[in-house]
């Protein structure tokens, strides 16, 4: 194993929020359970991806699949947390159109052996927008709880931090791959792994705030 940090440690860190959900099983809401499935699937995809990489088989096609699964599950998460019917309608529409767009990108534009630099930034834009919409709603609602005691605040912070910080990397990943050598690429994806780790830790804190 050449890159244990991004290949093993960070993917395995998904077990932290997963175990928090298992411990708090009785008190977690449906939206948190959706994130639990998202984490389980991410962990499984990372395992397959690392196995392929160890055996020197290209795992780029998995990123295309991961984008679709991740987007659908996270969109469903936002579908559950937004009460407004219009927001729900748009999220449902995105749950149908975004996978179609990803498939179109895979088949007609970028193929399975390149990074999906069209669909991944679009996904990031969607989730940055939805996170902002959540804050907008949270600002309008008068809440009698402290910010830090609301589980969703931590989860949305994690998503916003991850998608907005990785946005440039998603756009330029093919550019970095073609222009720079492997060591630079590894640094770039280690930074990405750190952002994922931060998101998982914020998820874990959020899940731990669920009251029994």
């Amino acid at each position: 194993m050449n890159h244990p940090y991004m290949g093993v440690i960070v993917p395995a860190s998904a077990l932290i929020p997963i175990s928090v959900v298992i411990v708090k099983n009785r008190s977690v809401s449906r939206e948190i359970k959706t994130l639990f499935f998202y984490l389980l699937i991410s962990l499984a995809i990372s395992l397959v991806s690392t196995t392929l990489a160890v055996n020197h088989i290209s795992n780029l096609f998995l990123i295309h699949a991961d984008t679709v699964i991740e987007a659908v599950l996270l969109l469903y998460f936002f579908y559950l947390i937004f009460p407004h019917p219009i927001a729900k309608k748009w999220i449902l529409l995105l749950m149908i159109t975004f996978p179609l767009f990803c498939m179109g990108n895979l088949i007609f534009l970028q193929g399975p052996h390149r990074y999906n630099t069209y669909s991944r930034p679009v996904e990031a834009i969607i989730f940055i927008g939805l996170s902002m919409l959540y804050w907008w709603h949270a600002g309008n609602n008068t809440n009698d709880q402290a910010w830090t005691n609301i589980p969703l605040n931590w989860v949305i912070s994690g998503l916003l931090l991850y998608f907005s910080s990785s946005f440039l990397l998603f756009i330029f990943s093919n550019f970095i791959l073609s222009k720079y050598d492997t060591s630079v690429n590894i640094v770039a994806w280690n930074i990405h792994a750190t952002l994922i780790l931060t998101m998982y830790l914020l998820f874990a804190v959020g899940f731990s705030k669920c009251k029994t």
Binding site: L160, L161, S164, S165, S166, F167, L168, L169, F172, F175, I176, K179, Y180, V184, V187, A188, I191, L195
Partner: peptide
């Protein structure tokens, strides 16, 4: 460009924080 991208990512990350 790699440094520029990393700086851009850091900037966005700080903004979000």
């Amino acid at each position: 460009y790699f440094i520029l991208i990393v700086m851009g990512m850091t900037g966005i990350c700080l903004l979000v924080i």
